[in-house]
Amino acid sequence: MSITINILLVDDVEYSRELLRGALLTCVHDHKKDLEANFFHSSTGEDITDTIKYNDIDLVYLDIELPHTSGLKVLKEIRETYPNLMVVMVSGESSIGNVTTSIRDGANGFIVKPFNSGRILETVENYLKRLSKQKS
């Protein structure tokens, strides 16, 4: 049975979003033949819960360094409404402060730029694992 994932990319840098989208598409095509992905994006993280609601988002990749706010604040906002939605933090640096705050506030993953395809694939696999656990 084919699975469709609605993925939200939150990042203000367009080519960074495109890069991640391309890498995710490659993962989806190369490794999971029965998987499809729809992509949505936000450049600012504003009104995040509405974006998630209206687009029925399953998986969020959330950049920490946003222009007017921090992805860590956006994560908190998401968690108030969506405690179980899978959120993967994205950052140019894996500073320990950001990593520990992400863990404390309930992030489910953390990937670092420049992107590594093995790590990105791991996040997709983790999403599918969660999905099969929820179903069983």
Partner: peptide, 9 residues
């Protein structure tokens, strides 16, 4: 910061 993050890719 942006250059640091992505130039490698």
């Amino acid at each position: 910061h942006v250059i640091n993050g992505l130039a490698g890719n």
